[in-house]
Write a protein that binds this DNA or RNA. Sequence first.
RNA 1: GGUACCAUAGCUCAGUAGGUAGAGCAACGGACUGAAAAUCCGUGUGUCCCUGGUUCGAUUCCGGGUGGUACCA
Length: 306
Amino acid sequence: MQNQSGKKQLIVITGPTAVGKTDLCIRLAKEFSTVILSADSRQFYQQMSIGTAKPGKEELAAVPHYFIGQLSIDAYYNVSMFEQQAMDLLDDLFQKHERIILTGGSGLYIDALCNGVDNFPDIDPEVRLKLKNDFAERGIEWLRDYLKQLDPEYYNIVDIHNPNRMTRAIEVCLATKKPYSQQRFGVKKTRPFEILRIALNRPREILFERIHQRTNAMIDEGLVEEVRSLLDYRHLNALNTVGYKEIFAYLDGEWTLEQAIEKIKTNTRRYAKRQITWFKRTPDYHWMHPDEYQNILDLIKQTCDA
RNA sequence: GGUACCAUAGCUCAGUAGGUAGAGCAACGGACUGAAAAUCCGUGUGUCCCUGGUUCGAUUCCGGGUGGUACCA
């Protein structure tokens, strides 16, 4: 079953939201009697199920899943923690499996596991909070000036319209007392396993139709109630999420339910577009249609049995 | 059936004192290293309903047609 190098294989199955990743992965996992790791930054949260289109009970029972619902809604989490935990877990799981499936739509998380991310110290949450407040009070010019002073090199390449990017750089500078740009290496880490990257896609029109249908299904399954039960946590980052923020606006009386549903569909379409843009820049992806099961199977076997 | 008003981008609409047109939303393209379903940047994609007339030139003015809306019958 192993390839020439004797390495195990991580099969990455990604693609835009609603393309059909879950169904395909369940089928593949059964075929290879293996397990599924999720790289979906919102399905991590225990209390977010309907709105994140988590795999259903039957699916979770059929194949062991990891990184689904392992976090409480108020837990802090980041991509570096994911990299570490997933690497540790893979180390263990590859003892028993030749192939393991990684699926999900969070491109940053997938890339962190495949390529690694640079090492930065943990940042005191108070620092970020203070920067956030200062920015709200003093505006983006202040943020720019601050960054320019701490790290002129990064200032020159950063998107100076993007507060999140600049805030991140500043907090690293403050925590390390060194410019952020001098700690960004972007070196690709080598992994002790082979990685096969597959990106699923469908004609745009069809994808959008699926988003439309799936959003309606979420409402039928009780999305409004799920969101209502999370009202106390609405300020948390985890809930700054398509499908949740729109329903909050409905519960606030800002939009009708119909308006909120339309907004969810629109924002989901945009999210799907951003995902596709992200995946396109990694040339390793084999772009496949989710229905090409045999071709996907052949690709996996070919890569591994070669 | 009559009268009035309307017909411009995917949608809602603005505009052109006659020189082939522009906003919002949608859409499309892009960026991305601990917030990533986040955050941010860029792009107008058009038989100006059809058809005659006037004019060097009509989306714009005039006539007719078609469709829609409102009111009157």
